[in-house]
Amino acid sequence: MKAIRFDRFGPPEVLALVDVDEPHPRPGQVRVGVRAAGVNGLDWKIRAGLMRDFFPVELPSGTGSDAAGVVDEVGDGVTDVRVGDRVFGVGTNALAEHAVLDAWALMPDGLSFEEAAGYPIPVETALRVLGLVDLRPGRTLLVSGASGGVGTAVVQIARDRGITVIGTASAANESYLRKLGAVPTTYGDGLVDRVRALAPDGVDAALDISGSGVVADCVALTGDPAKVVSIADFTAPQHGARVSFHALDIAAALREAARLHAEGVLHIPVEAAFPLSEAAAAQARNQTGHAAGRTVVTIPGPVARS
């Protein structure tokens, strides 16, 4: 089968489309014919060698964790899906014609493969960090980097819970945030003053999604470092804030994502889609950090077998 691999750390150009053996599920896993795969910030950070202390990689390596597709093999002990089911989930080496998933959920009606592929890690992350700050309805949340996949999920879920959201993004993405239900502002110098003008009663918690050096500002705005969580700035503990990057119950998060979409709460648009052969361009696009929605890789199917 065709899959994306890299044999050294480096820029997007180290990614190559190669022929590899098909994977097969172990007990408790399923295999899918991948129709779309999500591109996450962690993917390019691992490829660039920036995460070797946290996520050791044996080279050559595949890439990608989020996929949506059709189940074509079921491992021993799996009883909740069968061959032919449409699922989205998390596994390994998702940028390939076939991928093995460790956690999954059935896709609700009306959810495309492309959009579903953008859900797993962003929605799990959004649910996890919202749980850490634990805000009640009527409270105010600052989200730094609100227009990407994780930010989009955070804004929609928080708004559904009755939380007021102030989100930072580039000026070009302010209208996108308004459509999500957030109060937008730009990032950069003067952030504290801009947010205080928008929230004269104060900010109850802050989430740093983009990792752009705003943790100190977030602490200043909340007045309590325990109410600041970053998913991308590993210096956050120096300010008394927390870093969260280890997933908890991914399967439960996927089921919740399916429910939220089915109820009309959650929609993460696909901003850009690339074919498998252009996976390097897809990761480069994600790496710019200015998306309004998700970047995905698509794989038309079914894949013919010899």
Results as ranks from 00 to 15, higher is better:
137 P>V: 04
138 G>M: 03
138 G>R: 05
139 R>H: 13
142 L>D: 05
143 V>R: 00
143 V>C: 01
144 S>P: 10
144 S>K: 06
146 A>F: 00
146 A>T: 01
147 S>Q: 02
148 G>A: 03
149 G>H: 06
150 V>D: 04
150 V>I: 12
151 G>Q: 00
152 T>Y: 00
152 T>K: 00
152 T>H: 00
152 T>D: 02
154 V>H: 01
155 V>Y: 00
156 Q>K: 06
157 I>N: 04
158 A>R: 02
159 R>L: 05
159 R>N: 03
160 D>C: 09
161 R>A: 14
162 G>P: 11
163 I>A: 10
163 I>E: 07
163 I>F: 09
164 T>S: 13
164 T>V: 14
165 V>I: 10
165 V>E: 05
166 I>V: 14
168 T>Y: 01
168 T>G: 03
168 T>A: 08
169 A>I: 06
169 A>L: 05
170 S>W: 07
170 S>D: 09
170 S>V: 03
173 N>L: 07
174 E>R: 15
177 L>N: 02
177 L>E: 01
177 L>F: 05
178 R>S: 13
178 R>A: 14
179 K>V: 08
179 K>C: 08
180 L>C: 08
180 L>H: 07
180 L>M: 11
181 G>V: 05
181 G>S: 09
182 A>N: 02
182 A>F: 01
184 P>R: 02
184 P>C: 01
187 Y>S: 14
187 Y>V: 10
188 G>C: 14
188 G>A: 14
188 G>T: 13
189 D>E: 15
189 D>L: 14
193 D>S: 15
